[in-house]
Write a protein that binds this DNA or RNA. Structure first.
Length: 621
RNA sequence: GGGCUCGUGGCGCAGCAUGGAUAGCGCGGCAGCCUCCUAAGCUGUAGGUCGUGGGUUCGAAUCCCACCGAGCCCGCCA
């Protein structure tokens, strides 16, 4: 029985014991340590409706309560709480055995989920803001996959956007070096992109040139052919960065393929017919087709089709979203684009000549779009249009997983040569103001390599480099996950390079400590019965048992912060156990084997937790 | 102007869904701990009007309202 199940069972038993009272909502929570392992506020709530003193109700319920055998003590506290103690003699065995077995809940079995993340413009390299997106999306993917979902990761390539127009114009004005001037190709194109944006300020005529280029791009001919080559090279380089931090994808969806599929034309007809898309005959939107969300005021309209007949971003997103949900037939063809470092195939949509056999993409039960909060309104609008179209409530099926942006701290901005009085500086690829993801990873690698060598004098160079790379990724991934989605992440180079305290490397270090004990233990097997006596052992067992409790929370909230905090807490518990009690040197056989089992259970649980966050467990560090 | 989000020790954050028992953690400060399973660690200590005011309640960091401060969105860009 896990912690989640224990809480569930306790709640049921409490409801039974309180059957004489009105039915109320109550909770089971963890009290401060001296009050026990679990407690319930049921008597406090009942006292209100029953008009009795909380303590009285608590004693009454305690006397009727038949608890699970894993609960050894029930106390009606004068405060009105019911406090419980876990019988670790009984609880430990199943917790440890289950942890070692690695049982996993299958809450998503039989359900298809589509996660879209990354989706950055193919006009520049990734900066740390994009990294937050990639890492959040990838972590949610890992968790949902673990929970038994049939999960697909999609990366949207906006190959017809303004940014591509900028790049094409930039190349025309600045020239094109197929070698990328010795830079990583996405870095090179990013420089052109920033430079042409600077040039607009001096020469407004360039904007007209770009408009013509965009028209040509949308016609899917002419400059489009060349842009495709550039875009694909940039995407490939961006993917290298994403792979480096452990992400993987199932399919790249190209905007040009959505356009070519003519899915929009059909949906547009339907929107017109149903009166969802409205033609503006006068005023500032004259000649445009727009939507207005019910209840919103005049002036809140969103244009779908411009007066010149071209479509806006939101219009192109509607058929794509409908495809994701299976509201329209799948008109895409698919080809194998490349193999990824994890060995899986990355597919791509195609215009024609697709593979006959391919995984079934789209048509998912749940769609999760990982996009920063600034697009919240647009995402709600897309969902609104889809709801009008399908007549279905999509709140639980079409989810915008919004997160706050990453900005740069004043200190780091100053070090980068950006003068500012403000507390933070917002990143902008267009202005060339950003912290490069590749550069950050390189800096972290260099620092981690020095640390690894310092701690392992004479170690093999290849081994040290491999460890350093994994430590670097752990640092960046944990750093991105440890604060909740609604908090702006202020990037500070000094803090980002930290490898101590609540960081990814701390978790890896703790894992290595446990691995080291198990490696040196030789042959051993689980004892008949466990012998634990120390508070630190009980605490660790309890933490281990909480894995599915935490998974449940992440599943419900889609917020990986809970996984991060859990992994950290698990390690804190282990380290305090580690510092207090010997394992290998414990003279009593039963205790030694019990502790070894506990270490094994911990190692197994932390491993799961790390893998869900995309952090490599390291046996030596 | 309308909408969304955030405000918790010097700094960075958990806790808020489901109100309750001394408000947790990391960094930084101070004091300790390596003849012992990896000190990327551990222990102790100092430091908090939970933005402000009001309301609901026996009880509010948590729920409601107002205000203040910060950020974002409100484009025929994406």
């Amino acid at each position: 029985m896990s912690f989640l199940e224990l809480v569930g069972s306790l709640k049921e038993r409490l409801s039974e014991a309180a059957s004489g009272y009105p039915k109320v909502e109550f909770s089971i929570l963890e009290p401060p340590e001296e009050f026990g392992d679990l407690s319930s506020n049921l008597p406090l709530i009942l006292s209100k409706v029953a008009g009795k003193k909380p303590y009285e109700v608590a004693r009454d319920i305690a006397s009727r309560l038949k608890v699970d055998e894993r609960i050894s003590e029930v106390e009606a506290h004068p405060s009105g709480y019911l406090n419980f103690r876990i019988d670790y003699g009984k609880f430990s065995k199943e917790v440890i055995e289950r942890a070692i077995e690695g049982v996993r809940p299958e809450w998503g079995k039989g359900r298809r989920v589509l996660i879209e993340h990354t989706s950055l413009n193919p006009a520049h390299q990734l900066h740390v803001g994009h990294l937050r997106n990639v890492i959040l999306g990838d972590t949610i993917y890992r968790v949902l996959k673990f929970l038994g979902y049939e999960a697909y990761v999609h990366n949207y390539i906006d190959d017809l956007g303004l940014q591509v127009g900028d790049v094409m114009l930039g190349i025309r004005k600045l020239g094109f070096d197929p070698e990328g001037k010795g830079l990583k190709f996405d870095h090179y194109i990013g420089k052109i992109y920033a430079e042409i944006n600077r040039m607009y300020e001096e020469d407004e005529g360039l904007l007209e040139e770009r408009r013509k280029l965009l028209e040509e791009l949308e016609s899917l001919s002419g400059v489009f052919e060349f842009s495709k080559l550039v875009v694909d090279r940039v995407v490939k380089e961006q993917l290298k960065t994403c792979w480096r931090v452990g992400a993987r994808y199932d399919c790249l969806n190209y905007e040009s393929h959505i356009l070519a599929s003519r899915m929009w034309d059909d949906i547009f007809e339907e929107l017109k017919r149903r009166g969802i898309a409205i033609l503006s005959r006068e005023g500032r939107l004259k000649g445009c087709w727009y939507v207005r969300v019910e209840g919103e005021k005049e002036g809140e309209e969103k244009v779908l089709v411009r007066s010149d007949g071209t479509t806006t971003y939101i219009a192109k997103d509607i058929p794509y979203a409908a495809w994701k949900l299976g509201l329209v037939e799948d008109r895409f063809r698919y080809v194998k684009a490349m193999e990824q470092p994890d060995g899986s195939v990355l597919w791509s949509t195609a215009l024609e000549d697709g593979e006959e056999r391919h995984p079934k993409f789209g048509a998912c039960d749940v769609v999760i779009n990982v996009i920063d909060v600034r697009q919240g309104r647009l995402q709600r609008m897309i969902r609104y249009v889809l709801e009008r179209l399908s007549g279905e409530e999509l709140k639980d099926r079409y989810i915008h997983l919004g997160y706050e942006v990453v900005s740069i701290s004043r200190d780091t901005a100053n070090e980068m040569g950006i003068k500012t009085d403000r507390k933070v500086v917002h990143m902008s690829g267009r202005k060339g103001v950003f912290v490069s993801a590749d550069d950050l990873l390189d800096s972290l690698f260099t620092k981690a390599l020095a640390e690894t060598k310092k701690r392992n004098p004479g170690a093999d160079e290849g081994w040290a480099r491999s460890v350093a790379e994994k430590v670097a990724v752990a640092a960046i991934r944990y750093g991105m996950l440890k604060q909740d989605l609604d908090k702006m992440l202020v990037f500070d180079m000094r803090k980002a390079l930290e490898l101590e305290g609540e960081t990814g490397p701390y978790l890896q270090y703790t894992y290595a400590r446990a691995s080291s004990i198990l490696r040196k233990a030789g042959d051993w097997s689980l004892p008949e019965s466990f012998s634990f006596e120390d508070e630190s052992e009980f605490k660790l067992i309890k933490e281990i048992s909480k894995l599915d409790f935490v998974l449940d929370k992440v599943h419900r909230t889609l917020s990986p912060v809970h996984m991060a905090k859990y992994g950290y807490g698990l390690c804190v518990s282990f380290n305090s156990f580690y510092e207090r009690l010997p394992v290998l040197k414990e003279p009593e056989e039963e205790k030694r084997l019990s502790r070894l089992s506990l270490v094994k259970a911990f190692e197994s649980t932390l491993k799961t937790c790390l893998e869900l966050m995309g952090i490599e467990p390291l046996e030596r560090i």
